[in-house]
Structure formats: structure tokens, C-alpha cells
Design a protein around this nucleic acid. Structure first.
Length: 211
DNA sequence: CTTGAGATGCCCT
DNA sequence: GGGCATCTCAAGA
């Protein structure tokens, strides 16, 4: 069992710009109550989606049935289904009416690793268990059933955490939003530099490891 | 190690 | 009906 505090971050943490929240979520711990077990992972990669003006954001065409939760109060889960197969977990930011959110893209598994493996249907190293937004949802049994739930509640919440002195925040363009024109280039993806649990980019986008 | 294709369902133009 | 904030597997080198 993890020894860090499991207290949920307060509502005001989320009631800010999504890019600030995305950066500060790095190192925090996502907790999931699932059938009597507690699953936990350290957040190592996020992306900010920053409102109707952001051409990569689901709110770019205004409020719809799918994105309605983003327009609601902060500190709630926005979970949507994509590619016919995967769910994506976001946390809603900003006060109600301002549709911003942070996509949780990768975790370093801390607790409940065996359950995560079972949910994912894979064996092997924990660094492959939740190193991508679709895998993260599978590993924590998060689906559209959780869309709209309060992150200050009982089944899914985030506790504070910190970066080690040796860790640094890195930024890049967001993944998979090439259609978004100039917004595709904005540096709204945040990750812990060098962390092994960060998602692997498609080879076509990968750069040579810097030395 | 790499690349490419296929899976698969729902929202919204 | 297009396209999507993805992933896995198989095959090649």
C-alpha cells in the first residue's frame, strides 16, 4: 500500500486554467476504488485542452451531448469513447461554463499492479501497463460509466504528490491532434522527463534520443 | 528494432 | 458517412 496521503485534491485545484492543472498534476497520484481493491498510479504524462478557441479541444464547436461535462463544474471526470474501442479519462478544469480539461495519458503503477495486469490482459513490466491514455483507462477500469463523476468522491480521485529533485517537467505538442491547425503545435503536453512510464510516441514522430 | 494495417462504435458535419 | 485526444499484432530487416 502506498504511504503517501490519499486525500483528494480540493475543488479549487481544478478551478484554474487547464495548462496549469496539467503541469501540476505531474507527480500526483490517481486513485481508483474497484471492487474492494485500491488501484493507484503516479501521473507522469498529461495534456491540456483549453476551451472553444482551441481547435484540438472537443469544445471547439460548442457544447454538445458528448462534451457537456466539460462545461460543468471543475473536479469532475470527463470520459469519452474513441476509435470504437478506447475510453479516455480527463479532469474538468475552470469554473462551470469554461470548457477546459486535462487528459491523463500515463501512469506509473503504484498499487494494485496485479489487478491492473488482469484488467489489461497482459503480463510483463509495469511500465507497459498504463503508458497511454487508452491503456490507463483499461488498467483502472475506467469507462464511460464514470463520465461526469465527482473527483472528490469515493470511486476515483487524485491525491497530491511531488516531483523528485532529479525530475523535471518537459513539454511537447499534443499527440494525435494534427488536424488542429496552429493549435496542433502548442506545447500543451506535459510529462516527466526521462520517466519510463511515459507513453511511447509513434515511431514516425520519435526523435533520436538526445545525449 | 521498425512499420503498417485493422479493429470497431459513436458523435457530429 | 467521415473521422477520431489509440492500441496490438504480425511481418520485415
Amino acid at each position: 500500500m502506498t504511504r503517501i496521503s490519499q486525500a483528494a485534491l480540493p475543488r479549487r485545484f481544478y478551478a484554474r486554467r487547464a495548462d496549469e492543472v496539467a503541469r501540476e498534476l505531474l507527480g500526483c497520484v490517481l486513485l481508483r476504488r474497484y471492487r474492494r481493491s485500491l488501484l493507484a498510479g503516479r501521473i507522469v504524462e498529461t495534456e491540456a485542452y483549453v476551451g472553444e478557441e482551441d481547435q484540438a479541444c472537443h469544445a471547439r464547436s460548442g457544447r454538445t451531448k458528448r462534451n457537456a461535462v466539460m462545461y460543468g463544474p471543475p473536479g469532475h471526470a470527463y470520459v469519452y469513447f474513441i476509435y470504437g474501442m478506447y475510453d479516455m479519462l480527463n479532469v474538468v478544469c475552470q469554473p462551470a461554463g469554461k470548457p477546459e480539461a486535462v487528459l491523463l495519458r500515463a501512469l506509473e503503477p503504484l498499487d494494485g499492479v496485479e489487478t491492473m495486469r488482469r484488467l489489461r490482459g497482459v503480463a510483463g513490466h509495469p511500465k507497459r501497463l498504463a503508458d497511454g491514455p487508452g491503456k490507463l483507462c483499461r488498467a483502472l477500469a475506467v469507462t464511460r460509466r464514470q463520465n461526469g463523476i465527482d473527483l472528490l468522491g469515493e470511486q476515483l480521485w487524485i491525491a497530491s504528490g511531488a516531483l523528485a529533485a532529479s525530475e523535471s517537467v518537459q513539454r511537447s505538442a499534443r499527440i494525435g491532434v494534427d488536424y488542429a491547425g496552429v493549435d496542433a503545435a502548442r506545447l500543451l503536453r506535459f510529462f516527466i522527463g526521462g520517466n519510463e512510464h511515459v507513453s511511447r510516441l509513434p515511431a514516425s514522430r520519435r526523435r533520436r534520443p538526445q545525449r
